[in-house]
Computed example of a mutant assay.
Amino acid sequence: MPVISSVIHTIDKKPDGSPAILHLRHTELPQTDVLENLLSDFNDAYNGKQSKGWGLFHAESGAYPFSGWLKAYFEGKNDFMQFSRDAVEHLTKLMEESNLSVGGHAMFVHYRQGLTDYLAIALLHQSTGVSLDQEMNVVAAPHLDFGHVHLAARVNISEWQSNPASRQYVSFLKAKQGRRVSEYFRDFIGCQEGVDSAGETRTLLKAFSDFVETEDLPEESAREKTQTLVQYASSQAKMGQAVGLSELSELLDEDRPRAFIEHLRTQDYGLSEEFPADKKVLNKFRRFTGRAEGLSISFEQHLLGNKLEFDEQNGTLLIRSLPTQLLEQLKRATEA
């Protein structure tokens, strides 16, 4: 994950309403192992965040100038330091206008992973821990706190440049609280939400449940495929990568690698070929199974409260909309 260019500027803004003071760094950060570790730690923390949005840049304008500065940098019209200065000055202005946030360290990193270029942007804060010096004395040890990053975004530069129709080349953190704070940072990046990752993930899981039912898979096979889907989607989310439906289809059935993708297209679920998975939705997807005295029950967790209603006090499970095959068997048994 080589770093191409990077810099950190500091915005000193206190919550007492006093004006923000911008401290600019005038040269790029030197290429060191420490810098590589910093980027790795940031990406690990960023990828682990569950509340993320995915989208695209607004059209460049006076209100949304960021993409224009970024484009000028990649076209060689401005260098990285000029890009970062324009951007952090704009961020400071928006921070002043919002009057909602304290300052921090504004990090800009252009790096390459494989053949793909990325730009990471984040507002970082320092925390103080403890360490030991060479004489084994206990000393204060300030460090950048990646565990509490709330304002950050990442741009897939290669996708932005090569696929103008894409609606998911920018990812950004969504604040669990203080929505207005995250909105001013999103305005700084100049991006709009283009993909409903939670909705897409729910649709994928619904399509998978329909597929399992249509294929009439044995319970063991259904459980294995469920585990494969969740592991693959979770792994992609952890790496900050999108779920690929064709790739997932191949993983679900090596003997029939097109089976699931053909099911998706036949039923027309409207899923994008690639989309970011939502970790919250994935974490709630489980398959419940039980077998006793000739009774076998298996269902996906998301059906609870919809097709299934569990009464804990009476130990009963109400099933609505029985599978057609089961319903026909019951009718024939009743008529006999």
Rank of each mutant, 00 (worst) to 15 (best):
P2I: 14
S5N: 15
S5K: 14
S6N: 11
I8K: 06
P15Q: 06
P19H: 07
I21P: 01
L22Y: 07
R25P: 01
N43R: 14
W54N: 11
G55N: 02
G55C: 08
F57H: 04
H58Y: 10
L70H: 03
M81Q: 15
F83G: 01
A87C: 12
V88C: 07
H90A: 08
L94H: 06
L94Q: 04
M95L: 12
E96M: 10
G103Q: 06
A106L: 07
V109F: 03
L119Y: 03
M136V: 14
P142G: 05
G147I: 04
H148E: 11
H150G: 04
L151S: 05
A153N: 00
R154Y: 08
S158H: 07
S162G: 09
L173D: 01
A175S: 15
Q177N: 11
V181F: 02
F188T: 03
E193V: 11
D210V: 00
E215H: 06
D216V: 10
L217V: 07
T226Q: 14
Q241R: 14
A242M: 13
E247M: 02
L248T: 13
L252W: 05
L252H: 09
R256C: 07
R258P: 00
A259P: 04
F260T: 04
F260S: 05
H263K: 06
T266W: 02
T266C: 09
D268F: 00
G270R: 09
L271F: 00
F275V: 02
T289Q: 09
I297V: 14
S298K: 03
L303M: 13
L304I: 15
L304Y: 02
F310A: 15
D311K: 05
T316F: 00
S321N: 15
P323F: 11
K331W: 06
A336V: 12
